[in-house]
Nucleic acid binder design. Structure first.
Length: 517
RNA sequence: CGCGGGGUAGAGCAGUUGGCAGCUCGGCGGGCCCAUAACCCGCAGGUCGCCGGUUCGAGUCCGGCCCCCGCAACCA
């Protein structure tokens, strides 16, 4: 039987700055989906990376007196370290300055020329000699370049243009019909609106830009951003090379995930380019929303950008993942109150999941102590408990929560995934109160055994459910139940009630999420 | 008349096909004692932006108005 495949991507991030909360948000969300699909037993390829060409990069490097390559090496490695710290499980990390990518982009551009999808034209724009780049109206202050206080010149240069107009009707049709799913629905509307407004052919090369991939058939030109960056999704898979096994296996992408500002390029330009060369189109393109911080748009100039690495320092990787994803519905914009992170950490994680884990394991240990003496050596929590007789009183409600959880995952509603987790947490807390194990310990051993079993088994389910969002906590919970490694077991099996064997030794863990003061 | 989103309890948000207005946090009161001073229960009563309309009945449909915000006119 062929395993189902799942190919998920984030955008490649532009290395003009270090990882920020937006890129972290996208990447964490993608990681959650990737982990979930792996749990389902699918063959997953999860790609992220960095976009490293362009004038801005060359300038930034010059300011620091290093070569552009040195500059991008530094920033790119910061992204890789950040994702490492955040437990991102990407299968590859593509860099647009890698020789593989560069070769395949050249191949692609040549192919565009061969099929007649590009033509020579003239680009006219406002050029600042000081910046050595074209400026947009938006960048100008009183009609002047803000950096050099000079009016930019209106100049023309040779460019190759992609014949977008030729492919627009087909792309529109595929989007409208849902062959390419654009999500959420409102973004789809917006994209369809763009067609009505009309779109122009776009440059795929530039003459004045120096830091980029040289156009193979015209050395005066360098490949311009979209024909470079977007290609990462297939060059990473070896498209156009001898070794294109991954490409044939994983393309088309199941989902391109991104923030909404680049939806146009992904929903329109990218499919059009793929059509031009006769390749399949991505199945789903999902654009999530933007953060505002305390009501204001996040920006470097305002100095209100949230550094994801600071969050990790404060809360840890798991909690950072959880907190970012639970701020607002995935796909909408949302405001983040910086002060709320700690409050929410305490309520959902310390008092919620952490406390539940702690109370359940404590009771197991207290009421059903293991007496084989083979405890963890040294350290605290060296005692252990045994799982008592099984019971299925919680099986049904847990099953329903699993259904909600999966539905949320399948529809990319990451925030609702978190709701499901919280619901299971709440179910367990209520169950404790309803059954009062400390009472049963005095007068009903038989029922006590069932109640504790149910709690331990529910905790196991929680541990599994936590895996996509908070892999570390998941691991700790499952280890404490003697179920550390479950990656080879399919989710559908893990979801069965009663997998936890009676008599299994459980070991209390240190606080999963220490309370913040 | 560029495109799109939104205005619901102190705050942040849910509200599918119209039918007693919900969730989380905070606040107040009670309970419990297994647990990370955690947990459970109850309460707190918001003209659902404004004005009309359709309907037995409208945050939920229609029309108009006011106010926020995002995207866009080839920034990566």
């Amino acid at each position: 039987m062929n395993k189902e495949k799942f190919y998920i991507t984030t955008p490649i991030y532009y290395v003009n700055g270090e990882p920020h909360i937006g890129s972290a948000y996208t990447t964490i969300a993608a990681d959650v989906l990737a982990r979930f699909h792996r749990m389902k037993g699918e063959e997953v390829f999860f790609l992220t990376g960095t976009d490293e060409h362009g004038t801005k990069i060359a300038q930034a490097a010059q300011e620091q007196n290093i070569t552009p390559q040195e500059f991008v090496d530094i920033i790119s490695s910061k992204y890789q370290m950040a994702w490492d710290v955040l437990d991102i499980s990407n299968d590859d990390f593509i860099r647009t300055t890698s020789s593989k990518h560069k070769d395949l982009v050249k191949f692609f551009v040549t192919k565009l020329k061969e099929v007649g999808a590009i033509y020579e034209g003239e680009y006219e724009g406002l050029y600042c000699v000081g910046c050595e780049k074209f400026l947009t109206e938006k960048e100008l202050v009183n009609g002047e370049c803000p950096d050099h206080k000079k009016r930019p010149e209106l100049i023309k240069e040779k460019n190759y243009f992609f014949n977008l107009k030729k492919y627009l009707p087909e792309v529109e049709k595929r989007i409208d019909s849902g062959e390419i799913k654009i999500l959420p629905e409102k973004i789809k509307k917006e994209v369809l609106g763009l067609f009505k407004q009309g779109l122009n052919d776009f440059s795929v090369t530039r003459e004045k830009v120096k830091w980029g991939i040289e156009v193979p058939f015209d050395s005066s030109q360098v490949v311009y951003v979209w024909a470079d960056a977007l290609l990462n999704y297939i060059t990473a898979l070896g498209y156009g090379s001898k070794d294109d096994l991954l490409f044939r296996k994983f393309w088309p992408a199941n989902i391109h995930l991104m923030a909404k500002e680049i939806i146009k390029f992904h929903a329109i330009f990218w499919p059009a380019m793929l059509l031009a060369v006769g390749e399949e189109l991505p199945k789903t393109i999902f654009a999530h929303g933007f953060f505002t911080v305390d009501g204001q748009k996040m920006s470097k100039s305002l100095g209100n950008a949230i550094d994801p690495m600071e969050l990790v320092k404060q809360f840890g990787s798991d909690a950072t993942r959880f907190l970012l994803l639970s701020q607002f519905p995935f796909g909408s914009d949302g405001d983040v109150k910086v002060g709320n992170f700690a409050i929410q950490y305490n309520s959902d994680l310390a008092n919620g999941i952490g406390n539940l884990t702690s109370r359940v394991l404590s009771m197991a240990e207290k009421y059903f102590p293991a007496n084989d003496g083979s405890h963890a050596k040294g350290g605290q929590g060296a005692s252990g408990g045994l799982v008592p007789e099984r019971d299925s009183e919680l099986a049904e409600p847990v099953k329903i929560i699993w259904q909600e959880f999966e539905k949320a995952m399948e529809s990319f509603e990451v925030d609702k995934v978190i709701e499901a987790i919280k619901k299971l947490n709440g179910l367990c807390d209520s169950y404790v109160e309803d059954n009062k194990p400390w009472q049963l310990a005095k007068d009903d051993q038989e029922k006590l055994a069932k109640v504790i079993y149910n709690l331990l088994e529910a905790l196991r389910h929680l541990g599994v459910m936590l895996y996509p969002v908070m892999p570390q906590a998941s691991q700790k919970i499952l280890e404490s139940l003697g179920k550390g490694d479950f990656t080879s077991i399919k989710l559908s099996d893990l979801q069965n009630w009663g997998r936890l064997q009676s008599g299994t030794k459980v070991v209390k863990v240190d606080a999963l999420f220490p309370r913040m003061q």
